[in-house]
């Protein structure tokens, strides 16, 4: 029993699965972004460039790993490892292969979103520990952004918890057997969740912390070699995690028409398809806007999204 459990932690739906699907999601995201832009995207490595993210990862692992002079060495070296660990831990809560995630207990929804915040704080430390000015400006911006998108993100999840009457992911999934949450009063929460997720993932139009043309790569500037590889993997896992969380909370997660005896196959398939829908909206969102300025991001989120999410929360509270 414990051996089987260990095996599932390391293979499916554990770490190996998460790493591979994170790379797959990066590839899909790049392909979609390229398609929207009239390009081909990754093309050379593997069929249709399918292996490109893995090739990038391996290449970065072999590159020289520099800790710049003047960096806070301990934090600088720990951040990539911790960030990846946090991202993996988050993903273990996802109900990929059944109604339950690998780790599941009452209140795991709260833990899952807390860890997500922790990830942003990791990125802040990554920038702060680097000696580069671009990193410091990037870290500053990432913290400012965190203060604005965190509230709508939490509130949209809170309205899910209220309408399902459960604080565990299993509870949320099982409550959706009667009907997915996106159908009903929670449709606005879904949109709010996706825009906040876009900000959390630091993608256009909210990619100010790593705005390429302004501050090089923001908090990521000084990282190279293995550390950069781990941080990029972290970003990929985060992308997988947030699109999957959107699918779990609003689109019914692994639920779908089940043929008895094939649950082991159908649950993961439904889950992946649904999270790909969320990924598609995230990619579309990314390709139709210009990058906002940091003050405009804060303005937009505080002026429109936060009041909207408060109203939405109250609305759900009254309706349910």
């Amino acid at each position: 029993m414990w051996l089987e459990h260990l095996l599932s932690v390391f293979t499916f739906p554990g770490f190996l699965f998460i790493i591979l699907i994170a790379f797959l999601y990066e590839w899909i995201d790049r392909k979609l972004y390229a398609t929207f832009q009239n390009r081909v995207g990754p093309w050379v490595t593997g069929p249709s460039g399918f292996l490109q993210p893995i090739a990038d990862f391996i290449k970065l692992l072999t590159k020289e790993d520099i800790t710049p002079e003047g960096a806070d060495t301990l934090i600088f070296q720990c951040v990539p490892v911790f960030a990846l660990a946090v991202a993996f831990t988050c993903s273990l809560f996802l109900p990929v292969s059944g109604h339950k995630g690998l780790v599941s207990f009452e209140g795991d929804l709260i833990i899952a979103i807390t860890l997500m915040t922790l990830l942003s704080i990791m990125f802040f430390y990554a920038g702060l520990s680097s000696p580069s000015r671009f990193s410091i400006v990037g870290a500053e911006r990432s913290m400012l952004q965190l203060l604005s998108y965190e509230i709508p993100l939490m509130l949209s999840i809170a309205s899910v918890a209220v309408s399902t009457g459960s604080l565990s992911i299993v509870g949320v999934v099982e409550a959706q057997k009667a009907g997915w949450l996106i159908i009903g009063p929670n449709i606005l929460s879904f949109i709010i969740f996706l825009s906040a997720a876009q900000a959390e993932l630091e993608r256009i139009p909210f990619d100010v912390p790593e705005a390429e043309t302004e501050i090089v790569a923001g908090w990521l500037t000084e990282f190279s070699g293995r550390k950069l590889a781990l941080l990029r993997l972290t970003k990929d896992v985060e992308l997988f995690y947030l699109s999957s969380l959107a699918a779990t909370l609003f689109l019914g997660g692994p639920l779908g028409p089940i043929i008895p005896g094939f649950e082991w196959l159908l649950h993961p398939v439904y889950f992946t398809i649904k999270s790909l829908v969320a990924l598609f909206s995230l990619s579309l969102f990314r390709s139709v806007f210009a990058r906002l300025r940091v003050d405009e991001v804060v303005n937009f989120l505080w002026k429109y999204i936060i009041p909207l999410s408060v109203l939405q929360f109250l609305f759900v509270r009254v309706v349910v």
């Binding site: 832009q37 009239n38 990619d207 390429e212 043309t213 210009a290």
Partner: peptide, 16 residues
């Protein structure tokens, strides 16, 4: 200019 403001989609379309 589109690239500088992070609007890469417009950048790609115009250059095409």
């Amino acid at each position: 200019a589109a690239h500088e403001i992070g609007f890469d989609t417009l950048f790609m379309y115009v250059w095409r």
